[in-house]
Amino acid sequence: MKLDGVETFYGAVKALKGVSFTVPDGSIVALLGGNGAGKTTTLRSISGLTTARKGTIEFNGTRIEKSPPERVVGLGISLVPQGRLLFAELTVAENLELGAYLRHDSAEIKRDIEKAYEQFPILRQKRAQEAGTLSGGQQQMVAIARSLMSRPKLLMLDEPSLGLAPMIVAEIFETIRKIRDDGVSILLVEQNANMALSIANFGYVLESGKVVMSGNVAQLLSDPRVQQAYLGQEAGPAAPQAVRH
């Protein structure tokens, strides 16, 4: 997937000021940045929840910058939104079924639900419970499992670790790595840069609506500016640096 010069507005507020980056097939790309940097807006622009005013978004050769969400998901891009947005009053099982809304292969859908329960055994136990009654970690599992039910080629996750206990976060990140290993590309938005870079292949840093740095994980981890701003470390000795934009 490739973004080129994407500009997105909320009313008169310009939230994205020309964002460009690519997500290579089969990789995990981390999109880092502080509060209000535009990470969520980037994912919303890709998934069609907010329409980019300028620039292009291309996925597998198709231009999607004007496509509504229901078309984008049909093309194979699924978003696990910030705050999860589960259907709180529907059961866990119903949430998963709705994830497969555009599919018509009911036998395969059943199999995929089974697979989700194998991946997150606790969800099998809770499958008849309303999703809103689950703990935060369990809800995040439902959100990820629900997104996977569309069999995406690209999975986007918006701060999946937010508000979760460290053990749960580790489990979620392990799951994300496994999903990548199954051949799904991942675009991971995180404020928790340490965790994100621990599983990512590439990273981009967003600041007030612009990509200000990019590089592979080694470059970003050793870049003093990244260390200072996002990893909570003092600047270390000079090392390979990320590309400054």
């Binding site: 069609g48 509504p68 969400p69 998901v73 049909g74 939104p81 947005l85 589960l86 809304y101």
Partner: peptide, 9 residues
Amino acid sequence: EAASLMGIS
């Protein structure tokens, strides 16, 4: 929003 993300029109 969540519904549209599932592909529901």
